[in-house]
Simulated scan of single mutants.
Amino acid sequence: MSVTHYKSSKGAVVIADMPLRYATNALNKLRRDEPERADEIEALAAHVDRLGAEEAAKAEQAEPDQPSMIGHNGGPQVEEPDAPAAKPPLTPWEAIKINFDDLLVEAGNWADGVEITTQDQADTVGRLRGMLQDACSAADNARTAEKKPLDDKVAEIQARYNEYIAPIKNRQPGKATKAIAALGNLLAAYLKKQDDERRERERAAAKAAAEAAAKALAAREEAKTTSDIAVMEDADVLLADAAALLKQAKSVSREKVQAGGGEGLRAQTLRTSYVVEPSGKEGAWNDALRHYMRTRPEAIRDLLLDLARSDVRNPGLRAQGIPGFIIREVKGV
């Protein structure tokens, strides 16, 4: 029974479905490394010969022999057949893709789990790896060239808008952004003053309400034991006054300090934010490190690992060693 499948490192492949280049590479590899697989070699060789003959026939049809000159003896004019339409040239991407696909087929034939045993094999693999590296460099250059018009257009659009809306942290903030910041600083000073005044009124109203409530409660206690109706009525009045003052204090606390707004515009208000800075006290950094080692140990470990990875690239620091870390030498191509 003839063999119908090629046993690759990734599983059985139907020989009849294999492209010519893939089949040729597989055949060469079997002949070189595993000549004992004679049945597969024979089947692959027949498949390669058949595909080669088909490609040769197609090439011959595409370029027929030129007919001899006729018509010189006065016979009828013979019209020459139309020349086949020329194929459009490959785009840079199409050429790069074809090159990649061919190289990857060859790489798949080598990178199948079988070790290199001879210098010739190592040289072949080395050349193949170099060709793939060159292909990657060429592809990256082509990618850069292909997207350059788009990058240039994006940069032009970005520059146009950045003139007005670039963030304030940029080296050149936008005109509108700077104006917003300046107006915000102007408003912040005024709104803070207004808010300070509101807080003072809130404190005064709360104090007055508390004092009135204390007086009203005292009068209420006195009214419980008095026989004077006027005293009772005075206690009720004081309680009502205290309730009114308390309501007024709550109203002051809810007052909004703002500017602008209306006609669909958002009102400008104060926004509370917080900044943190070193205290400057002796041992402050150690205190902070101990705090975060306790509360965020993963973040501290990641930071230390980043520092160690940076230091290990420095020959001097690597020679000194990095406390807490083991330095291993790793070889790679």
Rank of each mutant, 00 (worst) to 15 (best):
H5A: 06
S8T: 14
S9T: 01
G11A: 10
V13R: 09
L27R: 02
L27T: 03
N28L: 13
R32Q: 10
R37T: 02
D39R: 14
E42P: 01
A43P: 04
A46W: 09
D49I: 06
A53T: 10
E54C: 00
A56C: 01
P64N: 12
P76T: 11
Q77W: 07
E80K: 08
P81Q: 07
A83H: 05
P89W: 07
P89I: 07
K97C: 00
D101K: 00
D101S: 01
L104G: 01
A107I: 04
W110E: 05
T117P: 04
T117E: 15
Q121V: 05
Q121Y: 08
D123G: 05
T124V: 08
G126V: 02
G130Y: 05
D134S: 07
C136M: 09
A139G: 11
K148L: 15
P149L: 13
L150Y: 15
A155H: 06
E156W: 06
A159M: 09
A159N: 12
A159P: 07
R160N: 11
N162R: 11
N162F: 07
Y164C: 00
P173R: 03
P173I: 07
A176R: 03
N185I: 08
R198W: 02
E202I: 08
E202N: 09
A204K: 15
A209V: 09
A214V: 12
A214R: 15
L217A: 15
E222P: 00
T226E: 08
S227G: 13
S227C: 02
D228C: 07
A242Q: 00
L245R: 06
K247W: 00
Q248H: 10
S251G: 14
S253D: 06
A267Q: 13
T272P: 00
A284P: 04
W285P: 01
N286Y: 08
L289Q: 03
L289Y: 01
R290C: 04
M293E: 14
T295A: 14
T295L: 11
E298W: 00
L303D: 04
L304N: 02
D306L: 08
L307E: 15
R313V: 01
G316L: 09
L317F: 05
L317D: 03
Q320C: 06
G321W: 05
I322S: 07
P323D: 10
G324W: 00
F325V: 03
F325E: 02
R328F: 07
V330H: 12
V330M: 13
K331L: 12
G332L: 12
V333Y: 10
V333I: 14
